[in-house]
Amino acid sequence: MTSRRITTLGAAFALSALLGPGAALAAAAPSPAGSIAPPSVTAAAPQASGIPVFTDSHGLRLVPEDTQVHSPTDFTLTVTTPQVSGKHRIRILLPSAYGAGTDPDRRWPVTYFLHGGGGTVDDVAAAPALRSDSMITVVPDGGLKGWYADWVMQNTAEGAANWQTFHLSQVVPFIDANLRTRTDRAHRAVVGLSMGGFGALHYAEARPDLFGHVAALSGGIDFGMWQVRAAVLATELNVTGAWCASTTSGSAGSGRCTGYGPIVDSDAIFGSPYPVFGADRVWNAVDPAAPANLARLSGTAITLYTGNNDVIDVHTAAASHTVKGRLDRLGIPSRLVDYGNGTSLSPSCNGGHNYGCWAPALADYVPRLEGAFAAAG
């Protein structure tokens, strides 16, 4: 019987078909947003650094010696959990007034920002709008190819990989336990781009009780598209391509992706991608574009952004329009911004899969989100 798994060569062929001949150039070229190196950091104990004191909670154990302090309102914690192997960082941006002492009982809305494939928590440096004085921004590690999922296979080179459980059952309550947050859904948002665009929409559907607002930028949000499934397979097999080209986390802040980590089985994350005798049932169950999943977003504020001017965003545009059309048919309000070649969005945007477009898209979105938080009381 022929194996239904995809070899590394097969995934490379699939990704080549997905991306076209420009993929190698896209992977080698710096982002139009420019190369942004993560700011220098120093390790410090919270008590000596001016940042809030955090304690272990909800299965997360702090690694205090690995705390990185950029400023009293911008710092990175390191935690461990049995749910995901290894150490994992959580970058936190606080409003400037959080620790000012003028209103010590004030509680703040929270936005969770989910980075893309091949990225890290430091990618938030490329999106200045997320440094808001009206909300807390939390950027949890999503892995180079975590795909914001509890993996089907837990015995790969990655080890334990329950990313969804880590984020939704541990990180969110850990943040609420340690910071002065507004804990109702009207004051909590999840926002992501590329791989994180899938994560944002999937998390909003999986836990509508947690998130009242969701935004997906250039997201892989339609698992019914073979192009999106091929991109997931490419990350499993570390076939570096343009889905991973635009990140601030590359070597020395090069703006280039350094890869997706160790090769794992092509069925590791969502199981078999092939629609044969129900083999792809996990893909279908978590598909953000599935009408049954979209129906769970009734009462959620939904925003989608995409360009359509490179070998990746031509597919994220198709996925975004599919999702928008299905939401319309379900009678669920949503906002889609297809900025095409980027000229309608910003001079830095070429309509492609990069922070030259995502940063101005977030600059458009965040004030709207801040307004919605304020209107919720």
Rank of each mutant, 00 (worst) to 15 (best):
D150Y: 15
A149T: 07
V124S: 12
G86Q: 08
T111K: 08
W226M: 08
G356F: 06
D176K: 00
V53Y: 06
N178V: 00
E370N: 11
V84P: 11
V323P: 03
I332G: 01
R326W: 02
D74K: 14
A149C: 02
G271W: 02
D103Y: 00
W283M: 09
T247L: 03
A279G: 14
P128M: 07
L369G: 01
A295W: 01
Q170I: 13
V214C: 07
V282H: 09
G86K: 13
Y203C: 06
P39Y: 11
R229D: 03
N309D: 14
W151A: 15
R180T: 08
P173I: 15
T8F: 10
A127H: 08
V232C: 05
P275R: 03
G325P: 02
A268Y: 12
A215K: 10
S85K: 05
A29Q: 12
V138H: 12
D338I: 15
T306P: 09
L93Q: 04
A234H: 06
R5L: 13
T55E: 02
P288N: 12
G307R: 01
D267H: 11
R182S: 10
E370H: 10
I269P: 02
F174Y: 08
A157S: 10
A24R: 08
F174C: 04
P273V: 04
T306D: 13
L25Q: 06
T343R: 02
V232N: 03
A161G: 09
T156S: 00
G50F: 03
N341M: 00
G212F: 03
I221T: 03
P367H: 11
G352S: 02
V79R: 08
D364F: 02
Q68M: 03
P347W: 04
I6Q: 04
C244T: 14
D141I: 14
R207C: 04
D209Y: 13
H58E: 07
K324A: 10
A43Y: 12
F54Y: 08
V366N: 00
T42S: 15
A129V: 07
T120K: 09
L94Y: 08
P173V: 01
D209I: 10
E370P: 00
L336A: 12
T42F: 04
Y274M: 07
P82L: 02
G219N: 02
T8Q: 10
R180H: 09
R326T: 02
A231M: 05
D364P: 00
L77Q: 15
T120G: 05
